[in-house]
Design a protein around this nucleic acid. Structure first.
Length: 377
RNA sequence: GGGGAGGUGGCGGAGCGGUCAAUCGCAACAGACUGUAAAUCUGUCGCCCCAGUGGCUACCAAGGUUCGAAUCCUUGCCUCCCCA
């Protein structure tokens, strides 16, 4: 299912087999919460070489509803995307929509942000919804506590997450026996534990003992310093099986990703490239650039001189700035196209570097070039 | 020719004797954004500085009333609307 083909220091290159084809890792997965990567079409995603995208259980169960999607033949068909889809369980929404929820042993009671209707999301229901969607990689329902938190709070939370994980796994296996042959859906467990090394270890051991096709590191990039996050990743991956994929949820900046790859992570997702694109921040080989700034008003150069994406091949910074300021949707599309291209490109370069045993060299060079802009200003 | 309304910071537009360097919106300028309730949010936005319960100049212009005027009076200039 997952094979590591190259290693270089702590970094690994591999291939993950899914029901909708193989995924080369390390991989970045664009986020398409509501069944769409905002501002893009599936065609765009194919053109920039996206290998797998995300969908979200919470959002899709509320609207349009997972049974409705099931009746349409599943999420892939519904959204016109033929490659793999990973679906998040709604665990993050448990965290981010805190005012509207109640966490109990059974599950989470949400009030819909759309119309206030109460929903009970149990671990079993989260599995069922993701099955309805036809997800290739389903995440277990977890609790993602806000940081900072005491060890006691984190411990209680991680234990709940582990009990939920077991219930998710049981449900998943129960459904699987009913299904036919071939590569079926995969299910990933989620390691919590905040910033406490012992608790990360404990959570990893509990989760791994249940047994999943892959393991996610959750509960990071929720406000802690970057170095702390790197340390936690480094202290968690040693407790995860070498021969299975590791997914750092919600991370991160290009530098975060390079650092996490160095610490043995294979998969990433983050709203940063898409959201920031819509908000006028372009990620380039020289670091972040705010296209809104007046200094680009008459800049005829491309967003990133080192980039060969559609946006950079055809349009100037001056034009992108104009589109942003004029509120033209095309600006969001072109910026998103570029930012995701930059991310996917970076991942390609990471994979190549690992293959050639030059990851460390790449990493150092990336640090220098990506931060150049910040250092100059 | 007759009747009416009005001129406020880049624009629109509040304020109608003190608590006004002047609400608010837009524009402008900058910042934030990490498993997306986000094409969103925040800050700055007269000039000066030792950056503060600091100084200066300000609400068409010029006079005046008043302890005090963007607010009241006079004159001038300029807009707009209605009827002929």
């Amino acid at each position: 299912m997952f094979s590591v083909t190259h290693t270089d220091g702590g970094a690994r290159r591999g291939i993950l087999e899914t029901a909708h084809g193989p995924v080369e890792t390390p991989v970045f997965m664009p986020v398409g919460t509501q069944g769409a990567v905002k501002a893009l079409t599936a065609q765009h995603l194919e053109e920039i070489g996206a290998g797998i995208i995300l969908g979200n259980t919470y959002h899709l169960m509320l609207r349009p509803g997972d049974d409705l999607i099931a009746r349409r033949g599943g999420l892939h068909k519904f959204i016109g995307w033929k490659k793999p889809i990973l679906t998040d369980s709604g665990g993050y929404q448990v965290f981010s929509l805190a005012e509207r929820r109640k966490i109990e042993e059974t599950g989470v009671e949400f009030r819909s942000h759309l119309d206030g209707t109460a929903y009970l999301l149990t671990p079993e229901r989260a599995v069922d919804i993701q099955a309805n969607l036809g997800s290739d990689i389903a995440m277990v329902l977890d609790e993602c506590p806000a940081l900072p938190a005491t060890a006691e709070v984190i411990n209680r939370s991680l234990e709940l997450t582990a009990r939920w994980a077991k219930r998710c796994r049981d449900r998943f296996l129960e459904r699987k026996t009913q299904e036919t042959t071939g590569t079926g859906p995969l299910q990933f467990g989620i390691v919590q534990g905040g910033t406490f090394t012992e608790l990360r270890q404990k959570s990893a051991e509990l989760t791994v003992s249940i047994g999943f096709e892959g393991y996610a590191i959750g509960g990071l990039s929720v406000g802690e310093p970057n170095e702390t996050m790197y340390d936690v990743v480094a202290e968690t991956t040693p407790y995860l099986p070498v021969h299975q994929p590791r997914y750092l949820m919600g991370v991160g900046t290009p530098l975060d990703i390079v650092e996490a790859v160095a610490r043995g992570v294979d998969m990433f997702d983050c709203v940063l490239p898409t959201r920031n694109a819509r908000n006028g921040q372009l990620l380039t080989s020289e670091g972040p650039l705010n296209i809104k700034n007046s200094e680009y008003a008459e800049d005829d150069g491309p967003a990133d001189p080192a980039c060969s994406c559609y946006t950079c091949r055809n349009f100037s910074r001056a034009y992108l700035r104009h589109l942003y300021r004029a509120g033209e949707m095309t600006g969001g599309t072109l910026n998103t196209l570029h930012n995701l291209s930059f991310y996917l490109d970076t991942m390609r370069r990471i994979r190549e570097a690992i293959s050639f045993g030059r990851f460390e060299e790449f990493r150092q060079q990336f640090h220098q070039t990506f931060t150049r802009r910040a250092l100059l200003s």
